[in-house]
């Protein structure tokens, strides 16, 4: 199977590999899996007070397409607001990397990992707001 140059480039030099402190208040963690191939992807975001993603890291155990998809995803979400990051569609990732049809599910994994990380961050802050004394709306 012929893979695109972009894909190989992200696979050979993945950006933003690593971890952030999942217990930190400003970090959201998304952990998703693709049962069909046994892949697992962790994507983390650090969000500043303006709701902008300042840093993103990932760790993926899976095929080259899954690694490239998560690498590209972390690159794209940096500097975006949470709302903007949530708008990223797997089809955009698949298109950018020219994923072959059998590997489209890898881009779905990346999209869902972003959504899960954003949801985790929001859940953390909803909890914090609830417990804060003057947070009643």
């Amino acid at each position: 199977m012929a893979y695109s140059e972009k894909l190989l480039e992200h696979y050979e030099n993945p950006r933003n590999v690593g971890s952030l402190d999942k217990n930190a208040q400003d970090v959201g963690t998304g952990l998703v899996g693709a049962p069909a191939c046994g892949d697992v992807m962790k994507l983390q975001i650090r969000v500043n007070e303006q709701g902008v993603i300042e840093d993103a890291k990932f760790k993926t155990f899976g095929c080259g397409s899954a690694i490239a998809s998560s690498s590209l995803a972390t690159e794209w979400i940096k500097g975006k607001t949470l709302d903007e990051a949530e708008q990223i569609k797997n089809t955009q990732i698949a298109q950018q990397l020219a994923l072959p049809p059998v590997k489209i599910h890898c881009s779905v994994l990346a999209e869902d990992a972003i959504k899960a990380a954003v949801a985790d961050y929001r859940a953390k802050h909803a909890r914090k707001d609830e417990t804060a004394p003057q947070a009643a709306q």
Partner: peptide, 17 residues
């Protein structure tokens, strides 16, 4: 699943990771 649906069971995925 053929449609690429993902799973998010944290216990399972944390262990796998």
């Amino acid at each position: 699943r053929e449609d690429g649906a993902t799973i998010s069971d944290p216990e399972l995925l944390m262990e796998a990771m």
